[in-house]
Amino acid sequence: MIEMILHYDFMQRALIAGMIIGVISPMVGLFLVVRRLSLIADALSHVTLSGVAAGLLLQKQFPVFQSWNPLYMGMVFSLTASIFVDRLRHLYRSYQELAIPVILSGGIGLGVVLISAADGFSVDVAGYLFGSILAVGESELHVIIGVGILVTTVILLFYKELFALSFDEESAALSGIPRRSINILFNLVIALLITASIRVVGILLVSGLITLPVAASLQLASSFRQAMFWSIAFSQVSVLSGLAAAYYFDWSSGGTIVLVSVFILILVSSGKRLMHVVNRQIKSRTHSRHQEGSS
């Protein structure tokens, strides 16, 4: 595989894109999951679909936009939606999850209407829906690298504020952490991440890559740092398997990535259960031996 990677440009691009996405999605995903906001990613990815459709429509109608990557339009849409999510959550304080179906169905509705209005596109919309890592183009790779640098910088710079807000928002705000600004910044980061990962996993599976490796890491980690480490490790394994499956078997990269993530999750949680049972067995055995010895 290494030869192939060195040989083909598209493989190099796929590898770089995959590894970047494999680092930044669980990084953001960990904060999303512990704040119980994992579905926000899903909602925003559906909005991105309508953005991409709008971009494709513009390309079709106006030749001026020909050189424009539709992902940029997707980015604009999801950034706008992320601000809406924040507003909606303020509007319905006790129904915070209500923002998710509103944004999600709104996004998919608009996307479907735009696609049907365009009466077919020259590009394959399925590629956006399910991801095709081998098809990452030069301009898309630039988007991914740019977003990768930006997201990593924001997360590293505001790690402690994000941690404090995730653990206990009220106390964090009282202790002087600027809650509003950090939350808005974080929403923007999510929107950027989703746009960048669409090529790799696809709109329908983005939230899988963001949450599944984190879910597996939560089974193992006792500290936040450990959770961060494990979720990035699991996510890298999933992305690289997705790439390999796409290259060797021509399977969907997004589908494989998510399936491998699910498999890791099952493996980790059943491994943990097994360890638990074995430990208990050993404990009860030594305990009964002690009793035998004393009687």
């Binding site: 941690f163 653990f167 202790s175 890491s217 980690a221």
Partner: peptide, 20 residues
Amino acid sequence: DFPATVREVVASGLYGKLGL
């Protein structure tokens, strides 16, 4: 089930004072 140690949680009490 929050993945944080006692030390990490206690440290978060300093973050506001420490500043951005």
